[in-house]
Design a protein around this nucleic acid. Structure first.
Lengths: 206, 206
DNA sequence: TTTCGACTAAAAATAAATTTCGGTCGAAAA
DNA sequence: TTTTCGACCGAAATTTATTTTTAGTCGAAA
């Protein structure tokens, strides 16, 4: 049985195809059985090969794990980038950046059976890729701010202020995510993102 | 050896005094040895009594633990309330609310020897009292917003918006705290609180 | 070049034995 | 009557021992 994804370009070589097979199979197994439960034997069997074969294409289990996490994060980033692209103002872009991120992550966690009370114990998922993930989000968010400044919608910000603002937004959204996951209550998601965006853009001043 | 705190009013009765002794001793032992390591035997010996005596004044170890956490949180809240009281504008109040909270919590965690990488594993400290803690902070923060609206510094906000804004700020500050703790890097603390407050009050619009 | 069975060593899991500690009780002292 | 505590129990935690699992390697074969 061969795993392929219909949304990605066809792999260039037979080797690329097999590498892709490994990752896709691993992704599905991780989603189905959880991150800690899946063995290399499982993955190998899923693509019809022996366990040693995996070591021809990947250095270690960790390398496969990292590639899967990159894939998951990439999927969320694509979704976020698309939503940001479709918005026309900086305010709207910031809004959909936050909404799409929180919704997509929620779906990802649900896919992995990571339900609400277990978020903190799933350190692998949140910490393993967080640095890389925040870097990608930071790029997207900086793009939104730059766009707003260039169109005149936003005032000028010093590089230090941009750094600080990006830090505030990304870590702040993470805190919101943890709080909603922890209480298993997402009712506040849209009002929260709404007031966050509105007050950041327009301010609370009368 | 009798533990007393010089900043609190003297206990009304001998029983109150002993109850206070228990809490102060427990607090110091928790700080010194960590939350999981301290036994009731330790606490009893620290105040020169037998272990069973503790059960005359407290229902369970958990009740003592809760009282200690209330004490710790109360100390942070007092510090925050004082700083907010001393500020004159809503913007300033929001600023010192955030700065004081993040600094005070950092000191508390340091006191417990909870260094940066261990924050997530110290679920007891963060989760055991979080609900109560956020409730108290919510009261203080709502007071700041009400003050700003009453002085005309801030525009009117619907109750739903106030709820959402409070949620955003508290969970957002928690996310910032986790990020700084996780990276063991507090350089961003003041710039982050600065831009957060400024953009919330004045907005980013040009 | 690609594949894999056999193998190793470390890690993880399981089981058994031992120790620790929260909590209770009844009696004694204040 | 209030306060105190040693003795005790049972559950939980820890430690030790044993077994099983799994990541990774190697050499040979296709």
């Amino acid at each position: 049985m061969s795993y392929t994804t219909s949304t990605l370009p066809a792999p260039a070589t037979k080797e690329d195809a097999l590498r892709e097979n490994v990752i896709v199979a691993a992704q599905r197994l991780f989603q189905h059985y959880g991150l800690a439960k899946v063995t290399l034997e499982d993955i190998a069997k899923a693509i019809g090969k022996g366990k040693s074969t995996l070591y021809y294409y990947y250095k270690s289990k960790e390398e496969i794990f990292t590639a899967v996490m990159d894939r998951e994060i990439g999927e969320v980033m694509v979704e976020m980038a698309k939503a940001v692209e479709a918005a026309t103002t900086a305010e709207e872009k910031l809004c959909v950046f936050s909404l799409t991120k929180l919704r997509a992550l929620r779906k990802k966690l649900a896919l992995y059976g990571i339900v609400c009370k277990e978020v903190n114990s799933q350190a692998e998922f949140t910490c393993a890729m967080r640095q890389s993930y925040m870097k990608r989000e930071s790029v997207l968010l900086r793009g939104i701010l730059r766009f707003g400044i260039e169109t005149g919608e936003l005032g000028r910000l010093s590089p230090t202020d941009v750094d600080a603002l990006v830090f505030v937004m990304l870590s702040g959204l993470h805190g919101m995510e943890l709080e909603m996951m922890g209480n298993n209550n997402f009712d506040m998601l849209e009002p929260a993102v709404g007031i966050l965006t509105r007050s950041l853009i327009h301010g609370l001043k009368s």
